[in-house]
Write a protein that binds this DNA or RNA. Structure first.
Lengths: 195, 195
DNA sequence: GCAACATCTTGACACTCGTCAAGACTTTCT
DNA sequence: AGAAAGTCTTGACGAGTGTCAAGATGTTGC
């Protein structure tokens, strides 16, 4: 039973890899199995359903997301340090893990069509929003400026610039990461200047 | 040959309807045909491919998008009028055409995985960015404030808040449209207050 | 060693998919 | 009217899908 959950995680990792490469629309259970060391039938031993498998994957993914910038927030001693560090970290994950990010956007989009994914998508969205808010509120603290924006709005703005940067990054535009860095700085500043 | 292009448009409309209801992943040619008054074989008479059909659809969709807020921009006589009008118009299309919007996001996301869609997605994205920029620059003109943001950044921010609002709208959150309206006003203001 | 259980493979099933070809129906032209 | 071109339907094909059951293989306990 310990081995059971371990293997579930192992298969979920293979599924995440496949999904991030092919996208939701073209990912099949056989393809997932081929990206693991097992045959396709085993997936129905560890997961009841295809939906069950993907839902489990999404939850696994969530854990990885939640704490991506937490070290940064904890370590920053000044507002400008946090600002540039955050911008650099976003640009880095854009370059290093673009496939995982496009997978997340793909699954979140699927939740717009299939209700079975909606709950998890909204939950992860909330986690990401909290993550952004920790950065933003810490920044306000360090800069001693009042916050005039809601967590939702702040998250939406950063999500927008990141998603657009991802599109250009995967399209081969070499300035995508640099532009993202500029945008993040600009957006972060703009949050505190609203009257 | 005139009838030919007319029927292509007719079938493309059926395809758009199907895509907006089911999403890219679950849309088949037979389903598209069933949403038209023809049988499934006819699609290969008017389109060489499934990719050809969907590409054509996306182009059709683009035309509808390009001018959505142009009347608003032309009619506005003051900054605050443009601001509230823009926010209201976004909230309205969020409520009226959520399925078309989720389709656009779905197809743009597909372009992150399938290169065949990338060119069209980037092209439409540019059209949308220009559309936003017409509003933003006109607003700056009316308010006599200098613009300190790039078209790309401005578009990314509005796209972010709209996409998040769409997610909550389709999830049944009744305050989605109202929140979007607030966010749009806030984002628009923040564009001009960056030092 | 043997039985009981857990794990995994194999192969099949019913179904859907994109594609295409053969032919029926409709329209147009002479 | 009859031929020719255009338009549409039907049915089939090979491939791929999720699902599941039967059995092979591996592991554990006595």
């Amino acid at each position: 039973m310990d081995k059971f959950t371990e293997r579930r995680g192992q298969l979920a990792a293979s599924a995440l890899k496949t999904l991030s490469e092919l996208g939701y629309a073209r990912t099949s259970l056989r393809e997932i199995a081929q990206n693991s060391e097992f045959s396709h039938g085993v997936l129905h031993y560890y997961f009841t359903d295809k939906v069950d498998l993907i839902t489990f994957c999404v939850r696994e993914y969530k854990i990885e997301c939640a704490t991506r910038y937490d070290d940064l927030v904890a370590a920053a001693t000044s507002a400008s340090e946090l600002r540039t560090g955050f911008a650099a970290a976003m640009a880095e994950t854009l370059c290093e893990e673009p496939h995982m990010h496009r997978l997340w956007y793909d699954l979140r989009n699927q939740s717009l069509f299939e209700e079975s994914f909606r709950k998890d998508a909204l939950e992860i969205d909330q986690v990401l929003q909290d993550m952004i808010w920790r950065i933003v509120s810490r920044y306000a603290e360090l800069a001693s400026t009042p916050l005039t924006v809601t967590p939702r709005t702040a998250y939406a703005m950063f999500d927008g610039v990141f998603q657009l940067a991802l599109l250009h990054q995967l399209a081969g535009h070499e300035d995508a990461a640099g532009n993202l860095q500029d945008d993040v700085v600009r957006v972060l500043d703009s949050l505190f200047l609203v009257s």
